[in-house]
């Protein structure tokens, strides 16, 4: 297992805007990410949770180079992939960064044999003989717990869980160091979810992989992540070590998310649900974007957007409930 102290991913003040509006209209820019700053260490899993429209998948797409951010910087393994030499730097790290998508049905070409799909990154990187390539495919299949003869079969012959194993095998084909997993188990049944989460943890132990694990299901993230970042309407509202976040959520939104998770415990006293819905990106609320739903809203929250501040070692939160305490102290 490669042990280095290198940080895999450094994200600083990342912003992203998309043009909105169809033909004939002047496009208005919609900001979907607001000044995100976070790191992912070597062999670490950062969980990224949030509801639809929070921007979590956009973060994943930027980190693998599928989208070009409109502001801020991203460094992968110490190389800037957003600055002047972005093309050259990205080319240098491209094979070390891979992606596992949510839907294993859509991620595999139904007309291509599984072995060929898995080998495609190897072919593109072009550094293997045919025999090495076939050996590698068999090795990868074994690694993800599929029979060796799977290579000659087609995706429809596999169940959803098995297809996700194939997608993971393909992501591992170039021995990456960092894998973005975007809702990798959301489309799977509960009994399959456990199998895939266990596989991802085993692979991490074995190869020292770093993961950005994007999910809306906080229980899955709890099992796999070491640290968790919570997003709401394009901002990170809290980052904390896994145990701290679940035991003592600080941001009112984090607490609301945890309270809203149904638990397999009929004796639990259900907390009150928060009202309202995620705001439209076209007309975001002023100040703190959560203020329209927050049970602790103060006048200041409507005017001033809170910054993500470190309030304890490894604990960052963007909420005036905590910044207020800090500014009144002498």
């Amino acid at each position: 297992m490669p042990v280095t102290s290198e940080t895999s991913v450094e994200v600083r003040d990342l912003t992203m805007s998309f043009g909105s509006g169809g033909a004939g209209r002047r496009p208005t820019m919609v900001q979907v990410l607001h000044d995100l700053t976070f790191d992912i260490g070597s062999a670490e899993t950062l969980g990224l949770v949030g509801e639809s429209g929070s921007g979590k998948s956009t973060v994943g797409r930027i980190l693998v180079g599928l989208l070009k951010p409109t502001g801020g910087s991203v460094r992968l393994f110490g190389r800037s992939v957003t600055g002047a030499d972005r093309a050259a730097n990205f080319a240098a790290v491209r094979s070390r960064v891979q992606f596992v998508f949510q839907d294993p049905h859509a991620a595999l070409n139904p007309r291509i044999r599984v072995g060929h799909s898995i080998a495609e990154p190897i072919d593109i990187a072009g550094k293997h003989s045919r025999r090495d390539r076939d050996d590698r495919v068999r090795q990868l299949l074994e690694l993800v717990g599929l029979p060796r003869d799977s290579a000659d079969r087609f995706p429809h012959e596999f169940s959803g869980g098995q297809r996700q194993r194939i997608v993971i095998a393909r992501a591992l084909s170039l021995s990456p160091d960092f894998v973005v997993c975007d809702e990798p188990v959301s489309a799977l049944d509960v009994s399959m979810q456990a199998q895939i989460v266990n596989l991802l943890m085993d692979l991490q132990d074995r190869f020292g992989l770093s993961y950005l694990f994007i999910a809306h299901d906080m229980t899955v993230v709890r099992a796999i992540a070491r640290r968790v970042a919570v997003m709401y309407a394009g901002s990170i509202v809290e980052i904390a070590r896994n145990a701290d976040l679940y035991a003592d959520p600080l941001h009112p939104y984090t607490r609301a998310l945890l309270d809203a998770m149904p638990r397999p415990d009929p004796t639990r006293i259900r907390p009150r649900t928060i009202p309202g819905e995620v705001p439209s990106l076209l007309a975001p609320p002023s100040g703190c974007r959560f203020h329209t739903r927050c049970p602790h809203v103060m006048p200041r929250c409507r005017d001033e957007s809170p910054r993500l501040l470190e309030i304890a070692p490894g604990r960052q939160v963007a909420c005036h409930l905590f910044t207020a305490a800090e500014t009144t102290e002498p």
Binding site: S159, V190, S191, V220, A223
Partner: peptide
């Protein structure tokens, strides 16, 4: 039992989840 185990193990970070082998 298997379904319950695979859900409840999620409370402990880093621990392998109880899973039901095979598929439906």
């Amino acid at each position: 039992e298997g379904l319950m185990t695979s859900l409840r193990g999620r409370d402990i970070p880093g621990q392998r989840l109880g899973s039901i082998p095979g598929r439906v």
